[in-house]
Nucleic acid binder design. Structure first.
Lengths: 240, 240
DNA sequence: CTTGCTGTTTGGTATGACCAAAAATGTGTA
DNA sequence: TACACATTTTTGGTCATACCAAACAGCAAG
């Protein structure tokens, strides 16, 4: 007859979800600023009138959503989410997808598609400083031809410039996610200065097309570049 | 063979992470098939030699990664992750992003960009049955003009066809994610048969351009369509 | 075969305890 | 005073036990 627990939280829902949304609200409201540590679990117990079990479950949920960052035995740190956090949240699942048949191919095709559209757009409306940034990235890429490790970094940086041209923070986040997901495949590819030189040539083609304001040529060059890279690495997969 | 119960989990790591990866492996190996219920928590305790706290934390992590589906008081159900699961994992963060300044705009611009590229591609290489599917979707959309609710559904369905044309499962997943994220904004938009008729006209333009194999016209029609919709709803935001 | 009841299973939560590492505090020396 | 070192307190990670309520499985009655 007497209610055993006298809590101030709405019953019927899961207590953990209640705590999650409550903390989410405090983050969104700015009460818990970016970089600040989360209150100790034992404080949260008192604040929300729940058990430590619930608090820990809630913190784990927040962590997997990218709203807080947990390291073993450290206070969780609040992270105001950016588009990168969204990608990070998805990456756990994507890792599984990549191991399924055709998963890598589907993702890589998506990248080709998106990037081809990016260079087309870039050819149409890249600003002077965009093209200059692209030129510098290309130059650095060319100088790194003898060093395959440096070439990889400058390669990624070159493509990164393409994602920055629209000035929409979603695109750089997508690029970082792509490179992170596909890096394991890439590193299995044998590298050599000769291949670097070939890829640099492709990069030059893309740059020239954008500089010359030729969207079709830019799109074609990008597609050819990435498709060639795929053909080169496809042998390393056991897929039909 | 004999179930190895020699659970010597590496110390230094978190026990919960250990359990998570172990269950992930069982899912990836197919031992836990899609749709099957997860073993009871009390069984997992014995299997991995950890406390129930750890098991619950692990299950919560798996749930937030989209590998299992939990409903209150039901056995968690294993879900072989698809690209939709990846999007679902990201949606928690995206919800926060949408509330930040410019978040909706950035995401919507991304959608316009992607969809414009899709219709361009569709104009170039859509198959006969693709165009036929698009025509049927357009027809249904036209018939739903008087009913704003039905119009919204057929509107989404029309755009969905565009995402299916590349036959890459990533794109439909992206579409579902977009519509899910942006639906709250859309539903705030006042709807009327007149606006429906206008949107239907835009859809017709897109369809005609694809049917006529005119990539530029298709891309322009799509961009005009979505930009017009944005202009129509922007008044509902308190953004500069 | 269906319907309805009943005991069992199982997830959700609470409580208390212990450990180890981090953070905070105190202390002695230069 | 300033700084390095030792000690106490805090705090996250884990374990064990217990209880409740809803889902589930089995059985009896219709």
């Amino acid at each position: 007859m007497s209610t055993q627990t006298s809590n101030l939280r709405p019953s019927g829902h899961r207590a953990a979800d209640f705590v999650v949304t409550a903390i989410e609200g405090r983050i969104a409201a700015g009460e818990l600023a970016d970089g600040a540590p989360l209150p100790p679990e034992r404080d949260l117990i008192e604040s929300y009138g729940v058990s430590r079990t619930v608090v820990r479950e809630a913190v784990a949920t927040l962590a997997s959503r990218g709203l807080v960052e947990t390291r073993p035995r450290f206070r969780p740190v609040v992270r105001r989410p950016g588009f990168d956090a969204a990608m990070a949240a998805a990456s756990g699942v994507v890792g599984h997808l990549l191991m399924q048949s055709g998963g890598v191919k589907n993702l890589y095709d998506t990248r080709i598609f998106l990037e081809a559209a990016l260079v087309r757009q870039a050819a149409l409306q890249a600003r002077k400083d965009d093209i200059e940034a692209l030129r510098r990235a290309l130059e650095a890429n060319g100088e790194a031809i003898p060093d395959s490790d440096a070439f990889y970094r400058t390669d990624v940086a070159f493509h990164a410039v393409l994602y920055e041209i629209p000035r929409n923070p979603v695109f750089p986040a997508i690029h970082r996610a792509f490179t992170g997901w596909l890096a394991p495949q890439w590193t299995r590819m044998p590298r050599s200065p000769e291949r670097n030189r070939m890829n640099f040539q492709r990069h030059s083609d893309i740059y020239n097309a954008i500089r010359d304001r030729d969207p079709d040529a830019a799109s074609d060059a990008l597609t050819a570049h990435l498709n060639a890279a795929w053909e080169y690495v496809r042998g390393t997969f056991d897929e039909a």
